[in-house]
Amino acid sequence: MLGFTKGLKYTLKQLTKEKVTYNYPDEPLPLPDRFRGIQKFYPEKCIVCNQCMNICPTECINLTGKKHPDPTKKGKIIDTYDINFEICILCDLCTEVCPTEAIVMTNNFELASYSRDMLFKNLEWLDENDENVRQVNKP
C-alpha cells in the first residue's frame, strides 16, 4: 500500500501548483520571434531570382516575373507568387535563401479552412499577412 500512498501524496501536492495551461484561443499563444508561421511576402523587394522556388523541398511555391515597367531599369519584377499551403511544411528554407528578405516568416499559424482551395494563397494574400512578422530573419 505504500506505493499508492506515495503516489497520492504527489498528486495532492500538485493541487496547489500554478496552472500551466494556456487560455487559447481567447488569448494568443506566446511564441518566440523565430517561430515559423505563414510567410509574409514583400512584392516590392522581390527580384525574381527563383531561389525560393528552387530550394522548396515540397515544390509548393510557384512564381512568375515580368519585365520592369520602367524601361530605364534592368531586371524583373514579380508578377504572380503563390504558395500552396496544402503541401507547404513551413521549413523556413525559402526565407533562408532569399537575398533581399522579400519573404519572411510570421508568428501566424492558423490555416484551417473549409475547403482545400482556400489553402492556395496568392501574392495579395501573402502581402496582406503583415502581422507578427519576424524581426530578425538572418542569424
Binding site: L31, R34, F35, C91, D92, M105, P139
Partner: peptide, 22 residues
Amino acid sequence: LNELSGARLTFNYMRVGGVKWD
C-alpha cells in the same frame, strides 16, 4: 527548442557544417 529553432517538433535546425541559429 522552439526559442532555439522556431518550431515545436519539426525543428529543421541543423545544417551541413553547423546549425541555423545561434
